[in-house]
């Protein structure tokens, strides 16, 4: 039986050392895989704040992932074409600076999550799942039918957006960016879960009546949690757009929402490093089995079923034999 903290540290070190070693051995593909893990894990850290800590089963986080992605893509495409985004009442130029793109992605994701959350959180249970899905589908179809930014075909980013002092086109440099964001998001989520806000949020997941009875309004808590959650996932979306140098409506699809949720379930719902464990396992399976059969997702389904039936604590729960978290 292992304790959880060493397992978490080992996972993070693995995520850090594998791409560094791969880079030294001139295996850029492995570095890109690790970058994908870091980005997916960040997206899942975002969802985990709503789902794991708040008990809010959002089936619409692809909306925020995609909004972050389109934020990056749209700003970059305007910069590439030297066309301002708007000229009235003031001129807004496009940009390829990550330091500007990130706040825009966070803001756009936050506004979208606030609006979607404000309406969705009036429902609960299955209705909440369905209404978040419905909102995400609305955003998806909007992107598909909006020709200005590629519609169904998506939007290419010809040159990866830049960060001062780094050559983001070098795989290891871009990995470093994604890794730091993953760490920052995870540390923030840990702090959040131990704070006043986190205590009340997790209390409301366990027993909402009790939280009301001590004078705390669960709706406001959940709305803030959902907004923070959407912002982090949107940021991951902006990074994902840069990784692929391409944004398409598939980032907004319900399959994407499902995948982000699968990372969390595989890794362990509510566990701080569950998103990393889940995303890493997912990418590894895709890499190892995807080459063998295009039906690899069938095996993923079987694994998911096993985790849900027999290992409630997810992968980290199995390794550490601890079901409780928090």
């Amino acid at each position: 039986m292992l304790r959880e903290t060493p397992v978490n540290i080992a996972l993070v070190l693995l995520l850090l050392t594998v791409p560094v070693a791969a880079s030294a051995m001139d295996e850029p593909f492995i570095v890109t895989l690790a970058t994908k893990v870091a980005i997916f894990a960040t997206a899942a850290v975002g969802l985990n704040i709503a789902l794991g800590h708040g008990g809010l089963v959002s089936f619409g986080h692809a909306a925020f992932f995609g909004i972050g992605g389109y934020g990056a893509g749209i700003l970059a495409s305007h910069a590439q074409n030297y066309e301002p985004l708007m000229t009235w009442p003031f001129t807004v130029e496009g940009t390829q600076q990550m330091l500007i793109i990130w706040p825009v992605a966070l803001l756009a994701g936050g506004i979208a999550a606030l609006a979607i959350g404000a309406l969705s959180l009036r429902t609960s249970g299955v209705y909440f799942i369905m209404i978040t899905l419905a909102f995400a589908q609305m955003v998806f179809y909007f992107a598909v039918s909006w020709p200005a930014y590629g519609g169904e075909d998506g939007l290419p980013i010809y040159v990866r957006n830049s960060f001062p002092g780094l050559n983001t086109l070098r795989p290891l440099d871009f990995f470093a960016v994604a890794f730091v964001w993953f760490l920052a998001a995870t540390l923030f989520s840990i702090l959040l879960s131990r704070s006043r806000f986190g205590l009340a949020l997790q209390g409301a997941r366990q027993n909402v009546e009790r939280v009301r009875a001590v004078g705390i309004d669960p709706y406001r808590l959940r709305l803030v949690a959902f907004t923070i959650s959407g912002m982090i996932t949107a940021l991951a979306g902006a990074l994902y757009a840069d990784l692929n140098r391409f944004v398409s409506p598939s980032m907004l699809s319900w399959q994407t929402s499902g995948e982000i949720m699968v990372f969390i379930i595989l890794g362990g719902v509510g566990r701080h490093f569950g998103p990393l464990a889940g995303a890493a396992l997912f990418i590894l399976l895709e890499y190892a089995l995807g080459g063998v059969s295009e039906y690899w997702k069938f095996l993923l389904g079987v694994l998911l079923l096993l985790v849900v039936l027999f290992a409630h604590g997810g992968l980290i729960g199995v390794v550490t034999r601890r079901r409780h978290h928090g």
């Binding site: 959040l192 006043r196 009340a200 001590v214 004078g215």
Partner: peptide, 19 residues
């Protein structure tokens, strides 16, 4: 602690650990 916090009326602290 949750109840003490409820009475304090402050549930929107995000960084400081309650314990």
């Amino acid at each position: 602690v949750l109840a003490v916090q409820g009475a304090s009326g402050r549930s929107f602290g995000f960084l400081r650990p309650v314990l």
